[in-house]
Write a protein that binds this DNA or RNA. Structure first.
Ligand SMILES: [Mn+2]
Ligand SMILES: [Mn+2]
Ligand SMILES: [Zn+2]
Ligand SMILES: [Zn+2]
Lengths: 155, 155
DNA sequence: ATGATATTGATTTTGATTATCATTATAATT
DNA sequence: AATTATAATGATAATCAAAATCAATATCAT
């Protein structure tokens, strides 16, 4: 996502809520956009610290929350990535699901229109009004298999 | 799941690990099987307390963990059910995914063979060896819509 | 019954996330 | 530029589910 587009998104949200612009906020958002990956709060905190060592952990959490509320980013809680939440920039991107390597943690973004259609079919079948869904596929990536990790038993 | 089948599953696990049979363990497992639903540790704790008020919370957690390790039950962490983990009896049942009402918390179990096939197609496409997946569909159930909750705007 | 070992319940600790709070920064107004 | 009102900051404490600790008790092979 373009930095300016992200800023437009956040700025309209800040304006609507009478919130102020601030240095730390800018730095955290810019660092996150630049990183362009599925980060934990701690990972982002360390990245931001490199630019501005004064930044506090609480501000990173607060800014992530703000970004989620504004629709700019999204919380991800994978089953097999420890206990901590990851975040991803969402704005300006298509909806997608995730394929996760249980060995190296690699995250691949996937989208399948037919899969989405079938999910909607299930909503209809059970008479639910659809709001959202979460699909995560866990497995072993090619690289990890080559390295002899996550092999099929006997394979 | 039949109580005897569950006990066979857990007992073979206990035997393999040189673990002992115990009253509290039995009571917790029986209560969970009888409840036959997607429970939190706390909910199960309260159910078990009715039968045996001496039981401790820690033992409920320990037994749930044991059941998960033995393959008898499974952790569920839904996005929109507060922060706490739910558990379900797994052994002797088919794999299934979940449809969750974001208003009343109702959980509907769903299975779609074609959906499963497409997921496997995605694993193949990205050269992942498939291990597991998680699909959750969030929406508003018929009952909640009738009560005017979770309506589509303008609908 | 004995003894070795596992389990229990009460309690404390952990670890990620939030809340609190005095100080500082922002931005509008004079 | 100084004033003012309000929001944001960083340090720290609080929260909460889940795990770890530990002395007392239960299990089970002998
Ligand atoms: Mn993603
Ligand atoms: Mn289920
Ligand atoms: Zn991998
Ligand atoms: Zn409902």
């Amino acid at each position: 996502m373009a930095k300016n587009e992200a800023h437009a998104s956040i700025e309209s949200y800040l304006a609507a809520k009478n919130l102020k612009h601030s240095r730390p906020r800018q730095e955290i958002i810019d660092t996150f956009i630049k990183a362009d990956s599925h980060l934990t709060a701690e990972e982002l905190y360390h990245l931001v610290k490199k630019k501005n060592p004064k930044i506090g952990f609480a501000t990173v959490y607060r800014t992530l929350k703000l970004m989620c509320e504004s629709g700019l980013c999204k919380e991800l809680k994978f089953e097999k990535s420890g206990d901590c939440t990851r975040y991803e920039i969402l704005k300006g991107r298509e909806h997608h699901d995730h394929l996760i390597c249980t060995h190296c943690g690699t995250v691949v973004e996937v989208f399948d229109a037919e899969l989405e259609r079938m999910q909607n079919r299930l909503f209809k079948l059970h008479d639910f009004y659809p709001q959202s869904h979460r699909l995560e596929l866990y497995g072993t990536c090619k690289t990890c298999r080559k390295r002899g990790r996550g092999k099929v038993s006997g394979g």
